[in-house]
């Protein structure tokens, strides 16, 4: 009864009885040592040889191959990147050249146009000046002519007025008219 109500007791007695039967821990029984050492040595050497000559070289090779593949892809990517960068550089350079050329052309065209424009302006100014001078001289001439002709016209006009009013013809003289308006000099 005690045996079933106290499991600890059961286990302890079992442990003790097992140890007593076999002379303690089985690990310390030297009878099995030679067999264990033999099989351990044999099997460990077999496993080592299988790993060393068969499995591990396979892993090494595939890893090497993988590294090489990755490296080749990296190299290819680097080359592509380099060629892309050189193309971008070339494009930038060409773009810069075109920009410079464009600026030069704009500047040149602007200067040429400015020259043409200045020339035309000068021509127009000169022409304008000429025409102004001519006009002034014409005006002066006409003014002189009018000044010269004006007394005679006035005398003729006054003669015609006299005839209309008075009903008789009378011929006035320019000199008298000049005396009358005080311009007889």
């Amino acid at each position: 009864m005690l045996r079933y109500t106290f499991p600890f007791y059961l286990l302890i007695t079992d442990t003790i009885s097992a140890s007593e039967e076999k002379g303690g821990m089985p690990q310390l029984n030297p009878e099995s040592f030679s067999s264990q050492i033999f099989w351990l040595t044999l099997l460990f050497i077999i496993l080592f040889l299988i790993n060393h000559y068969f499995f591990l070289p396979k892993i090494k090779n595939i890893r090497k191959k993988r590294d090489e593949t990755i490296q080749s892809y990296l190299d290819e990517a680097k080359n592509l990147n380099d060629s892309f960068n050189s193309l971008v550089d070339k494009m930038d350079k060409e773009f810069e050249e075109v920009k410079n050329e464009q600026n030069t052309l704009i500047k040149k065209t602007f200067e040429e146009n400015k020259k043409i424009f200045d020339k035309k302006i000068l021509e127009i100014n000169n022409d304008f000046e000429d025409k102004k001078n001519k006009l002034n001289s014409d005006i002066d001439e006409n003014k002189k002519l009018i000044t010269k002709e004006l007394p005679k016209l006035c005398v003729d006009l006054s003669d015609k007025l006299y005839e209309k009013i008075m009903g008789e013809k009378k011929k006035g003289s320019v000199n008298d008219f000049k005396k009358l308006i005080g311009d007889d000099k």
Binding site: T15, I16, A18, M25, P26, Q36
Partner: peptide
């Protein structure tokens, strides 16, 4: 029931 150390016994095959 076998003791807890019985599992470590070396049995010849």
């Amino acid at each position: 029931m076998a003791g807890p150390l019985a599992q470590f016994e070396i049995k010849k095959i």
